[in-house]
Design a protein around this nucleic acid. Sequence first.
DNA 1: ACTTTTGTTAACCATTTGGTTAATAACATG
DNA 2: CATGTTATTAACCAAATGGTTAACAAAAGT
Lengths: 196, 196
Amino acid sequence: MEAQILGAAKKIFIAKGMAGARMQDIADEAGINKALLHYYFNNKEKLFQVIFLEAANKLFPRVNEIFSADLPLFDKIRLFCEEYLTIISENPYLPMFVLNELHRNPSNFLVKIWKDKSRPNPSAFLAQMETEVRKGTIRNIGPLQLLINLLSLTIFPFVAKPMIQQTLGLDEWQFRATMEQRKKEIPEFIINAIRK
Amino acid sequence: MEAQILGAAKKIFIAKGMAGARMQDIADEAGINKALLHYYFNNKEKLFQVIFLEAANKLFPRVNEIFSADLPLFDKIRLFCEEYLTIISENPYLPMFVLNELHRNPSNFLVKIWKDKSRPNPSAFLAQMETEVRKGTIRNIGPLQLLINLLSLTIFPFVAKPMIQQTLGLDEWQFRATMEQRKKEIPEFIINAIRK
DNA sequence: ACTTTTGTTAACCATTTGGTTAATAACATG
DNA sequence: CATGTTATTAACCAAATGGTTAACAAAAGT
């Protein structure tokens, strides 16, 4: 039952956001009485936090692993794109959900709830880039800028999915195919951009 | 008065989204009675649409102009980054607002409201890229992918602003400086990536 | 001056919404 | 089987919320 509720809550929260989601919607989606929701999860806030943390736990831990792995920079970039695009492709709406709620939360109290493992932590990656720049193996680009570029190229298409599909007239399958292609395109793009 | 209301509505809608915004909040922000809101704008939906269109009109028309301008590809990319980052920097929360509401709207009825001038229209840009690839002046990259890359690199940092600031520990000024830097960094990055 | 139109408000209303209660059903356990 | 515990529900409640009304003030027309 608890799992059933969480599934329903995930669907509704992700579709409508914290403010737009109705407890009744979640109950309906789970096929249960609204009171039963409060039996398992005391209130909307609590339920939402569970879903948010679940989302964060799907998105970030693997990223952090890759960022701090012991790999050459280029391989790391390739691995990141390959794996991260896979993760997001399986949960295309998670990035928007997380970013949006982060955006809406005053003084981001969500961050306080956040566990370390699932909090994004790019410090190792930044250090590695700096080393490569100093060694002269890549162009002189700010590590911060490069990190932002990497994240932008992988995440943004999913955040903008509705707009991209709308303005470019892509159906679901064309969109997926395009994202699949990006697993190879993005690393190539980035590496071409920074290789000396 | 009408302008005062619109200002308040813009602030509240952008901060909390359609679902999270309260008519009372908007009235308070505008320093007026709630009934006066309904005097000027019949209902929440109507008021929201005005704000949404205003936002879209700030974000897209100039982009379309640049996309369809008569300029060499590289210049176009430089111009786009320069101007678009300026526009967004002045309205850092607009992209999130538009993308979010687009995301939440079932069967995107918003798109129907949307005027042509302010609807994103990259077809000329896509064609130009295709030409350049065929002429062999740039690497063989899919025009669609390149367009997505360009948009990702410019827009995403603002959508992810809270997360970026949080995880990288940037204050407001550091963030702005980083974005300012990107006006030069992004075109350089892209051109390096595609130049043969 | 006075009448009409426009702007503004306090009070009110119906519905929605998150949450509770009390009663009941299902289940475990001695 | 009796008893206590857990799961589930219908009915209910108070607060919040979008929206309306009716009265009043200010401006504009005449």
